[in-house]
Design a protein around this nucleic acid. Structure first.
Length: 528
RNA sequence: CGGGGCGUAGCUCAGCCCGGCUAGAGCGCCUGGUUUGGGACCAGGAGGUCGCAGGUUCGAAUCCUGUCGCCCCGACCA
């Protein structure tokens, strides 16, 4: 069989969306299910999600939040309570109307037992959690109330893509209630910065923190903030959101408290979430034409040991050496945890076994055969380097350097993604230039084009609508300035991070679309 | 929801226009053997209500009608 140039066909350049699907499959992350629009998350993909969960959960706890769990079903009347909220979600709700099945004709089952009030499968939980909050909060002494839940939600999507948009997905939703507007706003920004910190330090994915325009706001929110990342096709992907909900949901759910002065007041609430979409973001940030590339801090397996077991007479010796190495490595700590090491001793699979791990994105592969044992060394391959760039290293040295090598990969992935974003971000001052930037040269089969554009905008929603219509380009966010940005108070970073000064700059100018005055540049891009 | 396409082995598909032996290929899977510092080779084998229902016909994967499902492109969205 002719060996293909790359493990994944087509390549990113040839057909990006198809490449994405192939990587999901080749890395064994997930597959489609018999239920339209829903996915089966396979063990490798779910292990990745568990790592994301564990890291984020620790950050939520460190910022004072507690986990709880609320019902999957939301009474229709709850959802109706907030006008903008209903309107935003009404078109994509799964509704439960019956509670029993009976044998019908032809051996089929038919639903019976109609419910008095239909139940909506949660698309998000503001209203049902608000109902609990209204009972839990009576005094200013009960505030702030800082709750998070890990859950699944359903949004009945018509066009779906694994991880990026599915009818059911896994996520976390934080819900908090506060005594003052200032405190709720501070919480909103803090959690946005927690997301930014997680994206950059764990996912090695640089993000822009910013505020959404009115048109892109969460239904029912006063202000919506987001982190936006650039994928390798130069499109933007919203990776997390944090909402300042004002008193809208407190009003709808009747969350009231008695203040220090004895007055009855409405609470101020926030909500914030990230989902399994992060896995899609991770994939499209780092992966190459040989498959997935995982940042070491989130990789379910950080180092895989691949013994060379071809000769019967050396087999036992090789395996013993490998088991010893695994034990040694598991005593090493990386980023506060023992190394995740896997020994793949499957036989007779030739290079295919190696390629399987390449496609799954394991950061470090170690190959060990009789020759290496003779020199007490290991043969090392890094996923961030070329397939052929392998090198030998004394075993002792490898064991003591292992954590350092992983951190080097972690940093390199971040730097590479950041450099890519910088290279594909452009300040644009003329309408023609803007249109040219976002127009592919080949209209029939559009090539990867565009990127992020920083352009002035006078704040008129009609311009947003026009650009969306003409180019399918939207304002991804109004980037935060250092004064506005929150502080997670957590310092987990692998490298200096923070607001990109290019985006954070907020000097006035002229809107190229209207000719009117603009307070500052905003970030435009095509988006997922 | 509008436009287009496709349902044949676990997967990717050929066969259909022009109806005709027991429905095929590649990959994957199982067994045995040969290999082995890198996606190996040979031999044998298992596996299919041709999406479903009806019709035309001596005979349907193939033609007709209906139906269900999926994919792609638009509109909408984390």
């Amino acid at each position: 069989m002719a060996q293909p140039q790359t493990a994944i066909t087509p390549t990113r350049v040839e057909d990006y969306p198809e490449w994405y699907q192939q990587v999901v499959r080749a890395a064994d992350l997930a597959e489609t299910s018999p239920v339209r629009g829903c996915m089966v998350i396979k063990p490798w993909g779910y292990a990745l999600w568990e790592n994301i969960q564990r890291s984020l959960d620790a950050m939520f706890k460190a910022t004072g939040h507690k986990n709880a769990y609320f019902p999957l079903f939301i009474p229709l009347s709850f959802l109706e309570a907030e006008a903008a909220h209903v309107e935003g979600f009404a078109k994509e709700c799964a509704v439960v109307t019956h509670h029993r099945l009976e044998a019908g004709p032809n051996g089929k089952l038919v639903p019976t037992g109609k419910l008095e009030e239909p139940l909506v499968v949660r698309p998000t939980s503001e209203t049902i959690i608000g109902d609990s909050f209204s009972k839990w909060v009576q005094s200013y002494r009960d505030l702030p109330l800082l709750i998070n839940q890990w859950a699944n939600v359903v949004r009945w999507e018509l066009r779906t893509r694994l991880f990026l948009r599915t009818a059911e997905f896994l996520w976390q939703e934080g819900h908090t209630a506060h005594a003052s507007e200032a405190e709720a706003r501070e919480e909103t920004m803090r959690m946005l910065s927690v997301y930014a910190e997680f994206a950059e330090s764990y996912m090695a994915m640089p993000v822009i923190q910013g505020e959404k325009t009115a048109g892109e706001r969460f239904p029912g929110a006063v202000d919506t903030y987001c982190i936006e990342a650039m994928m390798q096709d130069r499109k933007a992907l919203q990776a997390g959101t944090s909402h300042f909900l004002g008193q809208n949901f407190a009003k709808a759910s009747n969350i009231k408290f008695q203040s220090e002065q004895g007055r009855e007041e409405l609470a101020w609430t926030t909500s914030w979430g990230v989902s399994t979409r992060l896995i899609g973001a991770l994939l499209m940030t780092h992966s190459d034409d040989d498959g997935l590339i995982l940042p070491p801090r989130l990789a379910p397996t950080q180092i895989v040991i691949l013994p060379v077991l071809h000769k019967e007479e050396t087999k036992a010796q090789v395996l013993e050496y490998c088991h010893k190495l695994v034990a040694e490595l598991r005593n090493v700590h990386y980023h506060g945890r023992p190394l995740e090491v896997e020994l793949d001793a499957r036989e007779g699979r030739g290079g295919e076994r190696t390629w399987e791990w390449i496609k799954r994105g394991v950061p470090v592969r170690v190959e060990i055969g009789p020759r290496d044992i003779a020199s007490d060394s290991v043969f090392l391959a890094r996923r961030d380097l070329g397939v052929k760039e392998k090198s030998s290293m004394p075993r002792q040295q490898f064991v003591s350097y292992a954590a350092r090598i992983l951190e080097e990969i972690q940093t390199k992935l971040y730097d590479r993604a950041r450099d890519f974003r910088i290279a594909n971000t452009k300040k644009i001052d003329k309408k023609d230039d803007f249109y040219a930037y976002f127009t592919p040269k080949n209209a029939d089969k559009p090539e990867i084009h565009g990127g992020f554009a920083l352009a002035h905008w006078n704040g008129d929603p009609a311009i947003e609508a026009q650009l969306k219509n003409d180019l399918n380009v939207t304002i991804r966010c109004i980037p935060l300035t250092p004064e506005k940005a929150g502080d997670s108070g957590l310092h987990t970073g692998a490298a200096p991070r923070g607001l990109d000064p290019l985006f954070a700059e907020a000097t006035p100018g002229t809107c190229p679309f209207s000719g009117k005055a603009s307070p500052r540049r905003v970030g435009f891009a095509k988006a997922y």
